[in-house]
Design a protein around this nucleic acid. Sequence first.
DNA 1: GTAACATATGAATAGATATTCATATGATAA
DNA 2: TTATCATATGAATATCTATTCATATGTTAC
Lengths: 111, 111
Amino acid sequence: MNITDDCNADIKKLQESVPVDEETQDLSEFFRVFGDPTRLKILSILDGKELCVHVIADIIDMQQTAVSHQLKILRQSRLVKYRKNGKHVFYSLNDNHIKEILRIGLEHIKE
Amino acid sequence: MNITDDCNADIKKLQESVPVDEETQDLSEFFRVFGDPTRLKILSILDGKELCVHVIADIIDMQQTAVSHQLKILRQSRLVKYRKNGKHVFYSLNDNHIKEILRIGLEHIKE
DNA sequence: GTAACATATGAATAGATATTCATATGATAA
DNA sequence: TTATCATATGAATATCTATTCATATGTTAC
């Protein structure tokens, strides 16, 4: 830890370590996906399972359209994948990091 | 992976594995803090350093009030801590998980 | 004391977002 | 073909949020 106790910081030099806008933009969009209770529920129940839309809606007790909208966001951020079979569309997790991220988040809020 | 290819799921049983509202609410609030580019920049430059407010504002080129508002949110979610010294308030990271969370996020978006 | 500096905060505002409603698309069954 | 089921999507709306402006609080220097 760099304790200076003054404010004579070398601004120019420190600015070099600021991530570029594109990176913070992309990263914030990624975390925002986890920033909604409905999406967290969907991700949570898809853990180790493949479920179709109306079942997901029934489980978390939400309207089908609301779930579809959220699944679209989860698809676009590549957190879930889907497979069509007849009338049904089966969704499942598409990212190995999901469980780890949720675990770390839970650790923090339980501290 | 539980591939059923039908939708005859036991809704009642699956509902038991849905996290309670309080948990998804708290967890989503936690992740939402990471869902803003300005806060990500602040967390990023505080890595290994202790900086006062106006220096943070200079580094990321934002107004002091905007930074103060965001620091308040970071404080409330216990991601940063602060230490007052005279006129200055020095902020630093307060959570060991922060770097890990940012790293996982970056891994995902770079894939 | 007063001026200058550092930080915090309330109100206002513009932009983002989650849900609902209505409806479209696509598949199966009759 | 027609009805029904499963899913997706656009528009509308209510809520939330990030920034700015104005200003308050608190500290140091003079």
